[in-house]
């Protein structure tokens, strides 16, 4: 199936501000879906709250626009119930790294086959520009009364510490690069974080296109794959060093295919799961309960 990227629009008007980085993410996502030959019915975008949370309404695949910070547990429930579905999460930096941070960390522990796309613009846009968890200490964006007194957190390092097996960073206005990262992240069989640096032209007068160009660079001669524990440690140390550099690296930082994804882990303890996922299992026989043998199933309760 080969559709051009324009077929991926729902026709709902994307009501982001002009020049918003989300338009870049939107374009790259449609391109990635198209090039991956995605089956629209089998693909689900789960999103949080805020400007980024609206993205599922604009892309012509199934969309679940959830609660603030909770996209990850919704996505985990969907993916676990029906592993045939391809599930990705879109959320903002405030959503995923602020109110929803606990879920982001927990997802790393589970390693489900879900890519989390962090729309990182440093502010809470739709509530008029408050500081987000990625805004640097001392920064004073337009709507702040005082400079930010909190330090910024780094989603890549949080992801690494939490056990994510795919880590990447891209830039909202570099469609080709972002599309490549999305395709790689969607294809990766495990938990992934893709941080997308995006300007908020309305509220963030610090992280502008100009600033991003000066403060980022594209990774070259970097192999994100790891083959064994020794190499994993080396890579982890190298990523920490990169992330503490003056400029932020753009590209795929880590792709670790060694860890079992959540579905496999479930199948290792629930034998039936491997061939009969919850979504595949019947629960009734034309309106009647299944012929469960009470004594065979619940033997220990019988007197």
């Amino acid at each position: 199936m080969s559709e051009t990227s324009t077929d991926w629009n729902t026709g709902v008007w994307p009501d982001w501000c002009p020049g918003c980085g989300n338009f870049g993410i939107f374009t790259a996502l449609k391109g990635a879906l198209s090039e991956l030959g995605i089956d629209r019915k089998k693909f689900v975008i789960v999103s949080g709250i805020g400007c980024s949370g609206k993205i599922p309404h604009f892309v012509n695949v199934s969309g679940v626009h959830t609660l603030h910070g909770r996209a990850i547990p919704f996505a985990t429930g969907i993916k676990t119930a029906n592993p045939e579905l391809k599930v990705i999460v879109h959320g903002g930096d405030g959503d995923l790294l602020g109110i929803g941070m606990g879920h982001l960390v927990a997802m790393g522990r589970r390693n489900p086959d879900i890519l989390v796309v962090v729309h990182n613009n440093g502010v809470y846009g739709l509530t008029k520009g408050q500081a987000s968890p990625t805004l640097q200490l001392g920064n004073k964006t337009k709507s702040l009364a005082f400079p930010n007194i909190n330090s910024a957190i780094n989603p890549i390092l949080i992801g690494m510490a939490s056990g994510y097996t795919f880590l990447a960073r891209s830039y909202a206005y570099n469609i080709e690069h972002l599309k490549g990262c999305l395709k790689q992240g969607i294809s990766h069989n495990g938990a992934g974080i893709l941080e997308v640096i995006q300007p908020c032209p309305t509220w963030n007068n610090i992280v502008t296109m100009d600033w991003i160009e000066k403060n980022t660079y594209y990774l070259e001669n970097w192999d994100p794959n790891v083959k064994d524990d020794e190499e994993a440690l080396e890579k982890a140390n190298a990523i920490v060093a990169l992330e503490h550099g003056k400029k932020k690296p753009l590209g795929i930082l880590l792709e670790d295919g060694r860890k079992e994804p959540f579905g496999k882990r479930i199948a290792s303890v629930y034998k039936y799961y491997a061939t009969n996922t919850p979504a595949m299992q019947r629960v009734d026989d034309r309106g009647a309960a299944l012929p469960v043998d009470l004594e065979k199933t619940f033997e220990r309760f019988f007197v």
Binding site: S5, T6, N9, W13, P14, W16, C17, P18, G19, C20, F23, G24, T27, G31, I175, P201, T202, N205
Partner: peptide, 26 residues
């Protein structure tokens, strides 16, 4: 359409008034 779009989607905007950018009061 009152949206920002990527040039690859130009065919969706055939006959529309297109500009390099838009002015928003800062």
């Amino acid at each position: 359409c009152r949206i920002t779009f990527h040039i690859t989607e130009k065919n969706r905007h055939a006959g529309h008034e297109l500009y390099c950018g838009v002015r928003v009061d800062s």
